[in-house]
Amino acid sequence: MENIVKTGTPTRARAATLVTVGPPARLAEAAGVLAEADEAGSLRHVLISTTGEDVPDVEGLQDVTVENVRPQFLNNAVAALRLSSLPTVVWWRGGPPDRLPAVATLADRVLLDAEDSLPLWRQAPALFGRTALTDFRWARLTRWRGVMALLFDLPQVREAAPDFQRLRITGNDPAQCALFAGWLASSLDWQGRVAVELERAGASASLSKVELDGPSASLQLALHRNGACLTTEARVNGDVLTSRVLSLGSQALPSLLSEELRVRSRDIPFERALQQMAS
């Protein structure tokens, strides 16, 4: 036998420090999500609450919990708790938007997940060169974007694309709908040529339908009645080119988080979509 020192239980490789920032109620929810996320086991966890209430204890998860940090010292807390040997990912679940830049510059990646995204998105463009930003509203669009991109694999659709005139997006989360519109407008370089209509619908889905029309072609993505799939249809010159039902994948927070934690690089289409919205 080879002579190797065996340590008791092998320690799991730590892939990153995840700093979760927010008010205690949002941290409690985050702790529940982390307990279910595949990636959580490989992270070093830091939870920082921005108000005075206690952060609920979640066994085995928190490596460090810091309570009641005054907003102006949020970045100091992160600076003290990050490790230079591991990437730092900040999961921003709430807090004063004006503190985001100071915290973001200490992070390798920032996952925005506030109840109101818009004030953060206004801060975001100034941070693009300094950290890799994303937003859970954007993460929820990943499958929708993928499915739309599939339709653009068809040469007939690409041929008709310059003539699209109207984009109509239905859903109950205006910020998310606007983000999808921003992505299409920036990727297809519309420069205001296409009329964008956002319709707020009462149903529970943040995004339920996308329709893109022109004189010769129309594309439609819609949430399937089961809520777990997307139906897609592309028509060119009145003919149905393709019509499919595709899985929407899991939209649950633990799987979205796991997916986001696997990414470390900048998300240029997201940045462009935000810039498009700002312009």
Binding site: T142, R143, R145, G146, M148, A149, L150, F152, D153, L154, P155, Q156, R158, E159, A161, L184, S187, L188, D189, E259, V263, D267, I268, P269
Partner: peptide, 21 residues
């Protein structure tokens, strides 16, 4: 002329899918 590349694939997290097969 049909544009050669798919403009929506740029940096899409979902990797490229093949053409009709």
């Amino acid at each position: 002329m049909v544009p050669a590349g798919n403009p929506l694939l740029d940096n899409l997290r979902i990797e490229p899918t093949p053409g009709a097969t």
